[in-house]
Amino acid sequence: MEPPRPAVPPVPLPARPVVAVGPPAAVAPPPVKLRVRSVNFFYGAKQALHSVSLDIPEKRVTAFIGPSGCGKSTLLRCFNRMNDLVDGARLEGTILLGGQDIHAPNLDVIELRKRVGMVFQKSNPFPKSIYENVAYGLRIAGVRQKSTLDTVVEKSLRGAALWDEAKDRLHESALGLSGGQQQRLCIARAIAVEPDVILMDEPCSALDPIATAKVEDLIHELKREFTIVIVTHNMQQAARCSDRTAFFYLGQLVEYSDTGTIFMNPANPQTEAYVSGRFG
């Protein structure tokens, strides 16, 4: 038997004021980047998503929260069709990227993945040099010019706040970097191909607090240019980083609103219970 928890105080205020990050209500809402409509998703016979619909705004950070197995990562991996790699996976409904159905039969998945980059839970640098890791996306796209590659590598590493640490060891193995540096390298790698959207699947779950803070600062910077969707288990992180938050539970979208609303004044009692730590 679990002892009954003491009465939960109101959600602890996040370190940074959320209100300042969110868009002011009076301003017209930003254009929609990803439009998800009635998505059902199946792994074989098991249904992982039940009729999910939501709009993801452009150049904002959208956080997906929810307990493990609630389908948030599944939805994220639908955005760049990484689920294609899973045997027996099947999707119903539509996901539009800038008005284009990304599951259309004639769509070029490779082109889609160049427009929708991804950063994974476990940092996964390639067993190559730091330089080659960042240049990888361009090289496979056929860019050969050394000067172009040099420029993009520097720009991306600066964009991922890794340039100062890595500039003297560009041609050493990326596996020699620390965990946090590796994760920022993966972000640099993702932004090198200049995608529209960056998907982040629990990017900080394997990092220590200092490395986490660096990545979070980076997310703030990146949203000026990129639309970011982040899956996280860390609710403070969602509160700190994101403009919009979606709460998933058992494959259903329970509530989707401005981050401030979700954490301060949720409409759904389940959401309130989750964000206040009473379950999950």
Binding site: M82, I110, E111, N124, P125, G137, I140, A141, R189, V193
Partner: peptide, 10 residues
């Protein structure tokens, strides 16, 4: 590593 490569459009 494989997924990282595929996610970059390889």
């Amino acid at each position: 590593a494989r997924e990282g490569s595929l996610a970059l459009g390889a």
